[in-house]
Simulated scan of single mutants.
Amino acid sequence: MNLIKVLATLALVLAIAGCGNNSKFRSYDGPEVTQLMLFKEQRQLYLMHGQQTLKKYDVGLGFAPEGHKRVEGDGRTPEGYYYIDKRNPNSKYHLSIGISYPNPQDVEVARSMNLSPGGNIFIHGRGPLYRRGLPDDWTAGCISVKDKEIEQIYAMVEDGTPIAIYP
């Protein structure tokens, strides 16, 4: 009888261990990501170590992807030079890392129109609210990738990493 209990317990432990790690948090011990480069027209995000491409991702942009973000609610993804300034492990879009938009020039342009430049621009996943059939460019100005991809990006990219966003 004891042998049956031991075997049943062992089988249960192995079954639980076989379920794998469902955590969205990954580890990364490869080369440092020294810069991100986003090419909006190609919808490509590159994670770079110097001149070497470590990873490349297809992305979705804001629902009005052409042109530089000027004001809150315009649906555009910013263009220019920024840096990663925060992270949200509890994002409704799975995980997200923040981009330092608006910079002082962005603020000045929006103020000249008596409007807000907006903010809260992130690279994020899709999250549970994402539905198949949405257009590729569906965000309010953020950069979206698949959930498994933001897990990689979240692990690889440190706060303070520069990001260049090209038209």
Score class of each variant (00 low, 15 high):
9 T>V: 12
18 G>E: 14
31 P>K: 15
116 S>N: 14
122 F>R: 05
154 Y>F: 10
125 G>I: 10
66 E>I: 04
15 A>H: 05
165 I>V: 03
24 K>Y: 03
119 G>D: 11
21 N>V: 09
159 D>P: 12
59 V>H: 03
91 S>D: 03
151 E>C: 14
22 N>C: 11
66 E>Y: 06
38 L>M: 15
7 L>Y: 07
133 G>L: 09
148 K>S: 09
160 G>L: 00
95 L>T: 02
139 T>V: 01
148 K>Y: 02
68 H>G: 08
108 E>H: 05
50 G>C: 08
106 D>K: 03
111 R>C: 01
56 K>I: 06
39 F>H: 15
41 E>G: 10
153 I>K: 05
70 R>Q: 15
92 K>Q: 09
81 Y>T: 13
108 E>C: 00
88 N>L: 02
78 P>T: 05
117 P>C: 08
14 L>I: 15
22 N>P: 11
141 G>H: 02
116 S>Y: 04
17 A>F: 14
110 A>H: 02
56 K>A: 10
67 G>Q: 09
60 G>A: 02
127 G>I: 12
135 P>W: 03
38 L>G: 07
44 Q>H: 09
35 Q>M: 15
46 Y>W: 13
151 E>H: 11
137 D>V: 05
49 H>P: 06
39 F>V: 15
23 S>H: 14
48 M>R: 13
160 G>N: 03
144 S>L: 01
77 T>Y: 06
44 Q>P: 06
73 G>P: 02
108 E>L: 13
45 L>D: 08
140 A>K: 13
91 S>R: 00
68 H>R: 10
47 L>K: 06
17 A>T: 07
115 L>F: 01
61 L>V: 05
150 I>D: 08
167 P>K: 10
125 G>D: 07
11 A>W: 00
109 V>I: 14
55 K>Y: 13
16 I>W: 13
159 D>T: 12
7 L>E: 10
16 I>T: 14
121 I>K: 07
157 V>D: 02
19 C>Y: 15
113 M>Y: 14
139 T>W: 06
105 Q>T: 06
138 W>V: 00
135 P>F: 03
2 N>A: 08
156 M>F: 06
57 Y>F: 13
102 P>S: 00
125 G>Q: 08
30 G>Q: 13
155 A>D: 00
48 M>W: 09
114 N>T: 00
154 Y>H: 07
96 S>G: 14
165 I>T: 07
133 G>P: 01
156 M>Y: 04
64 A>D: 07
143 I>A: 04
58 D>F: 03
68 H>A: 10
138 W>T: 00
159 D>A: 07
14 L>Q: 11
102 P>A: 02
94 H>C: 07
71 V>W: 05
145 V>Q: 06
29 D>Q: 15
49 H>Y: 08
64 A>F: 07
107 V>N: 01
30 G>W: 08
